[in-house]
């Protein structure tokens, strides 16, 4: 199994940390992983993206031009990465702020109201975990148990009390993800 993923959105949305948790979960399952961020002078409000690869084999390039899955959190990222999803691949997006939704018919498209769901749950910061949950519904490449272990390993002890809330957000995302049919 090899899954090549781009996660893209605004800086501050938790794009990089979502990728990190996914990568850590891969490590917990004994997989090879790479996490390659866009880095630069851009910060909160600018664009941020990260390429995450999980594989059962040695990973060749951490830098890619086409992806199995694109997780898209703003319009700029949708405009840039929709075309870079491999035919038959997966595109997941949060419709919040999207005015030109995806149009491709040769890929599987899903949406998740991550912003809204997180707000309804009373913690907007878990937005990225809701989206991660939706991704795992579409592509169950890591087990929830691996994510829990990954969170335990990557978060400092004093933040461990936040883990149950994050797992709930993931479950909410799994339940409320919708498939989009482009006609």
């Amino acid at each position: 199994m090899t899954e090549e993923i781009i996660i893209a959105g605004f800086g501050g949305q938790g794009v990089l940390s979502m990728g990190k948790i996914l990568a850590y979960s891969g490590v917990m399952q004994g997989q090879e992983v790479t996490w390659f961020p866009s880095y630069g002078p851009e910060m909160r409000g600018g664009t941020a993206n990260v390429t995450v690869i999980l594989s059962d084999n040695r990973i060749s390039s951490p830098i890619l031009h086409e992806f199995d899955t694109a997780i898209i959190l703003n319009q700029q990222s949708l405009d840039k990465f929709e075309a870079e999803v491999k035919p038959g691949g997966t595109l997941l997006y949060d419709p919040n702020g999207i005015v030109h939704p995806p149009t491709r018919t040769d890929i599987n498209i899903y949406k998740i109201e991550g912003t809204k769901i997180a707000a309804d749950m009373g913690n907007v910061k878990t937005f990225n975990m809701v989206v991660l949950g939706a991704f795992l519904k579409a592509k169950p490449i890591v087990a929830l148990e691996s994510i829990r272990k990954g969170l335990e390993k990557s978060l400092p002890e004093r933040h461990h009390k936040l883990i149950p809330m994050n797992l709930q957000a993931i479950e909410a995302g799994q339940q409320q993800m919708e498939e989009v049919h482009i006609i």
């Binding site: 090879e32 790479t34 961020p37 880095y39 951490p62």
Partner: peptide
């Protein structure tokens, strides 16, 4: 280089 410096792997 910056790519290997910034990227995370196992």
């Amino acid at each position: 280089d910056g790519a290997i410096g910034q990227m995370m792997e196992k």
